[in-house]
């Protein structure tokens, strides 16, 4: 399949701290790619670079064959890069429905309403609570809202940053079922997770990130079977 997202030699800094030390990652159309790694490995930083909300020191990001390294974030959303960020980041005082409509901010026309209905079908709880402030939802519901809001952009690639963080096991299972369903519907997904086992189990391919560098890169099942991965991330 055609490469959709291609990251090469990417570095990024927070002041003098180097968070990414030359990352190479590709995601092909229709793929579900997982990025796993410990706390502080640089996973969020990488996603922030892809969305354009974090400055890149060197290296490049290209999307659908176009160099987007310097493109402002709002134009990247227009191209089809959409992210459900770490910590959900819903618009707390605004209604659930407004959150979803803002997800479609770069789009116009009647297809928005159809997608809104599709989201409500996928997440019935959001329909029930559509008029409530997003901040009043539970953690799991906010996570669903963050994912649904990202989907409202009708993305060509969906970036998910730790969608299972802080959720009860039952909800984690539900979120992962949703991700699998999205993949089966053809969505390209780049999934960042600390829950390495669950992420690699559903992923086509995976990358293991350690202190700003990719240390392993293989198909999901191979990584699950890899001794180093087992030891470091799966607690086996």
């Amino acid at each position: 399949m055609a490469t959709l997202l291609e990251i090469s030699g990417l570095t990024s800094h927070y002041g003098r701290i180097q968070a990414l030390k030359g990352i190479d990652v590709t995601v092909a159309e229709g793929e579900l790619v997982a990025l796993v790694g410990a706390n502080g490995a640089g996973k969020t930083t990488l996603l922030r670079c892809i969305s354009g909300v974090q400055s890149v020191t060197s290296g490049s990001i290209s999307f659908a064959g176009q160099d987007i390294t310097k493109m402002p974030p709002e134009h990247r959303v227009g191209l089809g890069i959409s992210q459900s960020p770490e910590g959900r980041q819903v618009f707390g005082p605004m209604s659930v429905e407004d959150n979803l409509r803002l997800g479609a901010y770069r789009r116009h026309g009647p297809s928005i309403k159809a997608d809104l209905d599709r989201m409500y079908e996928m997440f019935p709880i959001l329909y029930k609570k559509r008029e409530l402030p997003a901040g009043t939802l539970s953690g799991g519901q906010q996570q669903m809202l963050a994912i649904a809001r990202a989907l409202m952009a009708n993305p060509r690639v969906l970036l998910l940053d730790e969608p299972s963080m802080g959720l009860a096991p039952l909800l984690v299972a539900e979120i992962f079922r949703t991700i699998v369903a999205l993949k089966e519907a053809g969505t390209t997904i780049f999934l960042v997770e600390q829950n390495a086992y669950a992420a690699l189990a559903i992923a086509d391919r995976g990358y293991v990130l350690e202190t700003g560098s990719v240390v392993l890169n293989d198909i999901g099942s191979n990584l699950l079977a890899n001794d180093k991965v087992k030891e470091a991330y799966l607690g086996l």
């Binding site: 354009g52 709002e74 227009g78 959409s82 980041q89 618009f91 707390g92 005082p93 803002l102």
Partner: peptide, 13 residues
């Protein structure tokens, strides 16, 4: 005003 990062991520300039 509520969440600048989230606004950027949904494509608000």
């Amino acid at each position: 005003s509520h969440n600048r990062l989230a606004a950027q991520l949904v494509g608000v300039g």
